[in-house]
Amino acid sequence: MFELIGIPPQALLGQLFLGLINGSFYATLSLGLAVIFGLLHIINFAHGAFYMLGAFAAWFGLTHFGIGYWSALVLAPLIVGAAGIAVERLLIARISGLNVLYGLLLTFGLALVVQGLVRNFYGSSGLRYPVPADLAGGKNLGFMFLPWYRGWVLAISVVVCLTTWFVIERTRIGSTLRAAQENPGLVEAFGINVPRLVSLTYGVGVALAAFAGVLAAPIYSVQPEMGADLLIVVFAVVVIGGMGSILGSILTGLGLGLIEGLTKVFYPEASNVVIFVIMVVVLMIKPEGLFGSAQ
């Protein structure tokens, strides 16, 4: 068995793989943020709360109704997406046209409400969600151990991200969405219901977050703050990548996850902050972000 600068390759590849898992969550969440931002021009501070709600809905369904993982993977995003549409209609739509910072403040308040409610009824200690039986265990690949569930999370995240990219860049509804990002007034004048498109976009964006939440439930413990802390990292990811490009968001998310994994191997003390440090460096060199365009 050879060693790389004193690190056994098993540990290195294992950490890199874990990094990719984290990166897939960064990618999915920053993708949702970018899609919402593109049309609504708000940064959805409640994104972490919706992610947490996805994980929590899966736990709730299993505990109280015996709804299994695979059903939860479909149901939780649908329920959370519907809630998102209601939120957009009832709250966010009322501040359209105001300074964009109001959207940030509004959704921050929303996140506090959701997190506070969940913590109030279920406490802040983590709730356990089991790995689905179909995906228990794993396989020793010789150079590393691959837990099936984590492999699944990585694969499905990449599939979901690429599907989102495909829908936005290659379909009719996607072209309508892009047009509405550019000039909503004209799109409306062509006979398209832009307010409905906006609600739908917000719903789909938060449904993506909820989907990621269900994926995360068996890996991380389900607790009210799980989304808030993650969201701050995702904000840094968004600043690093810029929000102009869908593929850019996906690549940035996965890449930063990898870098974080590497840091865990070589300099674990810095692994919590490495993404923030990269953000600082990127801001110094290319303030508009790797895939952003100067406004």
Binding site: L91, A111, L112, V113, V114, Q115, G116, N120
Partner: peptide
């Protein structure tokens, strides 16, 4: 926390 969030909104 919930109340503060509601005040924000």
């Amino acid at each position: 926390t919930v109340t503060q969030g509601l005040i924000f909104i």
